[in-house]
C-alpha cells in the first residue's frame, strides 16, 4: 500500500476532526479538513476549563491546532459540504465553494449542537434575562473571568439545572447527554472558587459520575466547596418582583415542594446531533439515533459506518466528553489505516 496516494477528507474541524486528521497525517495520508466555521476548534473554542482537572480549554485548543499544522494536512475553513456520494469506491464531495473533491475515504466528525434551551420554556431561557446556558457560563468565565447577572452584579445565589433537553420525552430526547452532570459539578466549583460568597444549588434527577475522577470531583464539591444539591427536577421558573428567578422543584428526598429564588439560573444543556450530523446521516441513509450516526457495531466496529470507506469520529455518534472524543478520533485514524491495508 502506498499511503501517499490515498486522500482522506475529514468533515468537521472540532477536537474529533483535528485529532483524526493529525493522526492520519502522521500515518502518511493526505488529509483535508473541511470546517464550516471560519475557525477550527469547534465548541472547544468557547470553553473555559475542562473537567475533571480544570485544564485550560484554550491551551488544549492550541495544542490540537499545532498538531494539525502539518504539511500533509490542508485545512479549508468557512466551507461546508453540500453533497456527499459514493461511486465505484470513490467518494464525490461538493462543497459550498462549488469545489469537487474525490477522496478515497471520508471521516465524519460533524459533532453536536447544544440543546436549544428555548424549547424548555418552563425554565425561562430567552424570556428571563438571567437564565443562561452552561455554554454561556463558560464564555462568561473565559471572557470576563467572573460571573455576573445582566446588570453586572455578582450573583448571591445561583441555581444549576441538570438534564435540560436530556432524558426528556417532552423534547423527544430519551438519552442521557453524559457530560452535563460533571459539567454542573465543575461549574459549581468554578463559581464558588471565583465568588466564595455565592451560594450554588444543583437541581438534579440523578448524579451520574461515570468518568474517571468524576466522583472524586463531586465529593470535592461537597466537602471543599460547599455546593448544595437538591434531588428534584425543576418544573418551572418565574420572575419575582425584585427581578430574581424563583424556581419550583420537589425535594424528593423529603417529599416536599421547595422554592428557591436565584439571581442566576444556569441550564445544563444537553448534547444533540448537529445539523450536519443529522443531515448527512439522513442523506447517506445511515441508521441514526436522534440524528446521531449509528456505527456498524458498538463494540468492534464503532468507528466504521455501514458505508465502505466512510468513518465516524467523536460526538457525531452520540454524547461524549472531550477526552472520549480524542480517544475515539485516534481509534478512527487507526481504522482508516486498517481499511487501506485491505483496499
Amino acid at each position: 500500500m502506498n499511503e501517499n496516494s490515498k486522500q482522506i477528507v475529514v468533515v468537521g474541524g472540532g477536537p474529533g476532526g483535528l485529532e483524526t486528521a493529525s493522526m492520519l497525517a502522521r500515518m502518511g495520508f493526505d488529509v483535508e479538513i473541511i470546517e464550516k466555521e471560519d475557525v477550527i476548534g469547534g465548541h472547544l473554542n468557547q470553553y473555559y476549563q475542562l473537567f475533571p482537572n480544570f485544564r485550560d480549554a484554550g491551551e488544549l485548543t492550541q495544542e490540537l491546532k499545532e498538531r494539525a499544522a502539518h504539511p500533509k494536512i490542508k485545512i479549508s475553513t468557512g466551507e461546508s459540504l453540500l453533497d456527499l456520494t459514493r461511486n465505484d469506491g470513490k467518494f464525490e464531495i461538493l462543497t459550498s465553494k462549488r469545489r469537487k473533491i474525490n477522496p478515497d475515504a471520508v471521516v465524519m466528525a460533524t459533532g453536536f449542537d447544544p440543546f436549544e434551551a428555548e424549547r424548555k420554556e418552563e425554565f425561562g431561557y430567552g424570556v428571563y434575562p438571567n437564565v443562561i446556558t452552561s455554554i454561556e457560563l463558560e464564555k462568561m468565565f473565559r471572557e470576563q473571568g467572573k460571573v455576573t447577572t445582566v446588570d453586572g452584579r455578582i450573583p448571591e445565589r445561583v441555581g444549576i439545572v441538570h438534564c435540560v433537553g436530556s432524558r426528556d420525552e417532552k423534547v423527544g430526547n430519551f438519552y442521557c447527554s453524559r457530560i452535563c452532570c460533571i459539567c454542573g459539578v465543575k461549574q459549581a466549583i468554578e463559581i464558588r472558587k471565583h465568588h466564595p460568597e455565592t451560594r450554588v444549588t444543583n437541581f438534579y434527577m440523578d448524579m451520574r459520575m461515570s468518568g474517571q475522577y468524576f466522583e472524586e470531583l463531586y465529593r470535592q464539591s461537597q466537602e471543599r466547596w460547599g455546593v448544595y444539591y437538591v434531588r428534584g427536577r425543576i418544573s418551572e421558573a418565574a420572575m419575582t418582583v425584585d427581578g430574581k428567578i424563583r424556581v419550583k422543584a420537589e425535594d424528593t428526598l423529603i417529599a416536599k415542594p421547595v422554592t428557591l429564588s436565584v439571581d442566576l439560573l444556569v441550564l445544563m444543556v444537553g448534547i444533540e446531533a448537529s445539523n450536519s450530523t443529522k443531515e448527512f446521516s439522513k442523506r447517506l441513509e445511515i441508521e441514526s439515533d436522534y440524528g446521531f450516526f449509528r456505527s456498524r457495531d458498538r463494540h468492534s466496529e464503532d468507528q466504521e459506518s455501514p458505508v465502505d470507506g466512510l468513518f465516524l469520529a467523536g460526538t457525531a455518534k452520540g454524547p461524549a466528553s472531550i477526552k472520549e472524543t480524542l480517544a475515539d478520533a485516534r481509534a478512527t485514524a487507526g481504522k482508516v489505516w486498517e481499511y487501506f491495508q485491505n483496499n
Binding site: D206, R233, E250
Partner: peptide, 14 residues
C-alpha cells in the same frame, strides 16, 4: 417513573 419530582413540583393542588 424515576421519581424526579417534576410532577409534584408543578402540581396545582400542591
Amino acid at each position: 417513573c424515576i421519581s424526579c419530582g417534576g410532577c409534584t413540583s408543578a402540581c396545582t393542588a400542591g
